[in-house]
Simulated assay, not measured.
Amino acid sequence: MKPNYLVRYLQNNQKVALLAFVSAAAVALLIFRFMLTGIPDFIFLTWNLFLAWVPLFLIKWVWEQDKSNRLPLWLLTVYLSVWLLFFPNAPYIITDLKHLKAVPENMLWYDAIMIFTFAVAGFLTGLYSIRIVFRILTSRWSHLLAWTSITSAMVLSGFGIFLGRYGRWNSWDVVTQPRALLHGIIHSIQDPFAIKHTLTFSFVLMLLYFAFHIFAELKRHESSHKYW
Rank of each mutant, 00 (worst) to 15 (best):
M1Q: 10
P3I: 09
Y5G: 06
L10W: 10
L18F: 12
S23M: 10
A25R: 06
A26R: 05
V27D: 09
G38H: 14
D41M: 05
F44A: 04
F44V: 06
L45N: 00
W47V: 12
A52V: 02
A52N: 09
W53F: 15
P55V: 02
F57V: 13
I59D: 06
K60L: 07
W61N: 06
W61L: 12
E64N: 15
D66P: 05
N69I: 12
L85I: 09
F86D: 00
F87T: 07
A90W: 12
I93M: 06
D96V: 00
K98L: 15
K101M: 11
A102D: 01
E105H: 02
T117M: 09
G122C: 11
G122V: 14
Y128E: 11
V133A: 08
F134I: 07
S139W: 10
S142M: 07
T148Q: 07
S149K: 14
S149T: 15
S157P: 09
N170Y: 05
S171T: 14
W172K: 14
T176M: 03
Q177S: 09
P178Q: 11
L181S: 05
L181R: 15
H183Y: 07
A194W: 03
A194H: 07
Y209V: 05
H213G: 01
L218G: 00
Y227W: 12
W228A: 14
